[in-house]
């Protein structure tokens, strides 16, 4: 692994202090019961309720298109730059390329992120790229590439799905030809409980396997995280990603939940885009 010599990385053997706090010492079931009380989550949401979303186009003046999106505490900023020639490319490609970079700000997560992309960020970049590739009309700009930079300012769960939506919005704002509006949501599953749009705390709860106490055999409950991005008018799933441990029945139910959830966000994005267009038209008329 190449290491970064120019920046102060800090001592290597530091440990996050949270390991020693009270919250870490309480058992999993306590934490889980705290998180889901009678089907109501700590922030007052129902299990299948999405957090409130705020979005705005045109926040970065230097970029061709940009978007800022907030899902409660999760905050993501995306900028999109003009199509440009693909550097160091010798052969002709019929379809345009997308270059996606997903980055957590160093202070965005409980643990400090380094300046270089780590494995998770690289993986998220790849997922983002796949999700966007099927929504952009790539044949419109052959042999060129569009750059999409995503910066997560604060991560309170569902960062990747928020980033996908933000990137879609920024691409539309940049005037890149697209087939449809792209929306994405995350679903966390722990046992029988399905949490739509999980927070960071809920995500970590959904990542652990809990042994079923009723059986003597080693059997674990369902758990996992699913991300689904959807082109709603065309009814096409552009990216589906899952980790954890789930059976087929649960998956089918989850896909349905996610598909309806993504549909609900579409009007919001439409409204935001219309707003930015009318603002543009007004400004041009004044000139």
């Amino acid at each position: 692994m190449p290491t970064d010599h120019r920046r102060i990385i800090g001592p290597e053997n530091t440990v996050p202090y949270r390991l020693y706090t009270k919250l870490n010492s309480c058992s999993f079931s306590e934490k889980f019961n705290q998180a889901v009380k009678n089907g109501i989550r700590p922030d007052g949401r129902k299990l299948n309720e999405h957090r409130k979303i705020f979005m705005k186009c045109g926040v970065v003046s230097q970029a061709k298109g940009s978007a800022y999106i907030e899902v409660d505490k999760t905050k993501v900023i995306v900028s999109v730059y003009d199509p440009r020639e693909i550097p160091k490319k010798t052969d002709y490609s019929l379809k345009g390329e997308l270059y996606c970079e997903f980055k957590y700000a160093p202070f965005s997560c409980p643990k400090r992120k380094l300046h270089q992309q780590d494995a998770e960020e690289k993986q998220n970049s790849a997922i983002l790229k796949r999700a966007l590739e099927s929504v952009v009309c790539r044949h419109e700009f052959p042999n060129f590439q569009v750059d999409v930079y995503v910066m997560v300012l604060e991560n309170d769960g569902s960062a990747l799905s928020t980033a996908i939506m933000g990137a879609g919005l920024a691409l539309a704002h940049a005037g890149i030809p697209m087939y449809d509006i792209i929306t994405a949501t995350t679903l966390g599953i722990q046992g029988d409980v399905k949490l739509l749009d999980p927070t960071l705390m809920e995500e970590s709860l959904c990542n652990v396997a809990v042994p079923n106490s009723t059986n003597n055999e080693k059997e674990y409950s369902n758990h996992g995280i699913l991300i689904l991005s959807m082109l709603s008018t065309h009814q096409q799933v552009s990216k589906f990603y899952q980790t954890g441990n789930l059976d087929l029945k649960d998956l089918n139910e989850s896909i349905d939940i996610l598909a309806t959830a993504t549909k609900d966000i579409v009007p919001l994005i439409k409204k935001c885009l219309v707003k930015s267009v009318t603002k543009n038209v007004k400004e041009n008329a004044e000139d």
Partner: peptide, 19 residues
Amino acid sequence: RFTTILQSSSGALHPTTLM
């Protein structure tokens, strides 16, 4: 039981096809 699902190439599909 599924431990990971991902799409290995670009391209979209209908939810029922996915299932």
